[in-house]
Amino acid sequence: MNKAMKATVVAAGIAMLFGSVNMTEASASKAANKSSQTVIKSSAADKKAVEAAKAVLSKKLAQKNPGDLYILYVRDKALNGGAEFMNYMNMFQFKTYEEYLNQAAKLKGPTLTKPEALPEGYKFVKGNIQPPLIKYLTQYQKEVKAEAAAQGKGVHYKKFVWKEMGEINLIFANGKDNLQMQVAYYVGKDKGNSGYSYHTADEFDAEIAKKHPDFVRNTLSWSDQNYIYNITTNPGNPLTKEELIKLSETAVKK
């Protein structure tokens, strides 16, 4: 027996004691139906609100305003594929090294720079800077959820202005060979300066290599208190581990 029906039966039983069965039972049934309808209307309203919010946010992303970051909160997870939040992001993307440097200079955190020892012939291809979601995601989610609660909303989104890099990716190429550089906020428990870790493309598991061929690269990694760094090259690239270490010495500006 559902709660609405159980409430109706209990109310009818009490009404019998006072000799007003018909009127009270009808009134209770009406109240139960009204309550049920309210729930349905609320769900329908939230569904429309989710669809409307997603349409607005998709339109905002289509405008391609670099740096835009929105987080959508949906109280009823069932209306959002089981997720309470959804991120909408337009990262900064660059076609020239100069554009990248200009934007990186405006943000807190380490900046990747073209290594002084990078062999002649390597040219900047593209790059991007992503928001610090890994570092501040929990905080951002609490903020948008708190705003929704304060406004009595089941669906709400908020724009976040970020002034700290979360991840940087740069690509340089020389003919068929390429070199990628990355810095990202480090979420590991054991933070601290680490030595270099180097793995060749040949060391990748065959299954992973088959499923994710783009992951198969020669990789030099290291970290500090807050960030992890990578310099990777394509399989067959002549740059050695020692040469990548040399590049790393001038690859980061803090």
Rank of each mutant, 00 (worst) to 15 (best):
N2H: 06
N2G: 06
K3G: 01
K3P: 04
T8S: 06
V10A: 12
A15Y: 07
F18N: 08
F18Y: 12
N22I: 10
T24Q: 10
A26E: 10
A26H: 13
A31L: 03
A32K: 02
N33F: 09
T38A: 15
V39T: 05
V39P: 05
S43W: 14
A45Y: 03
A45K: 03
A52K: 02
K54S: 03
A55I: 03
S58A: 08
K59I: 02
L61Q: 02
L61A: 04
A62Q: 04
K64Y: 06
K64N: 05
G67D: 00
Y70E: 02
Y70V: 00
K77G: 01
L79C: 00
N80S: 03
G81N: 01
G82S: 00
G82L: 00
M86H: 10
M86E: 15
M86C: 09
M86N: 14
N87A: 12
Y88N: 02
Y88F: 05
N90Q: 05
F94P: 04
K95R: 04
T96K: 07
E98V: 12
Y100K: 04
K106N: 11
P110A: 14
T111W: 14
L112T: 06
P119E: 07
E120T: 14
V125Q: 15
G127R: 02
N128G: 14
N128A: 14
Q130W: 13
Q130D: 13
Y136F: 13
L137D: 12
L137A: 13
E143M: 11
V144H: 03
G152P: 01
G154N: 07
Y157R: 00
Y157F: 07
K159E: 13
V161G: 09
N169W: 09
F172R: 04
K176Q: 05
K176E: 07
K176C: 05
D177I: 05
D177H: 11
Q180T: 14
V187C: 11
K189V: 12
D190V: 13
D190N: 14
G192R: 03
N193P: 13
G195K: 11
Y196S: 11
S197C: 11
S197A: 13
S197W: 11
Y198H: 06
H199E: 10
T200D: 04
D205E: 05
A209Y: 02
P213R: 02
N218W: 03
T219P: 08
L220R: 06
S221D: 12
S223K: 15
Q225N: 10
Q225E: 15
Y227G: 10
Y229D: 13
N237V: 00
N237Q: 04
N237S: 06
L239S: 05
I245Q: 12
S248D: 06
K253G: 09
K254G: 11
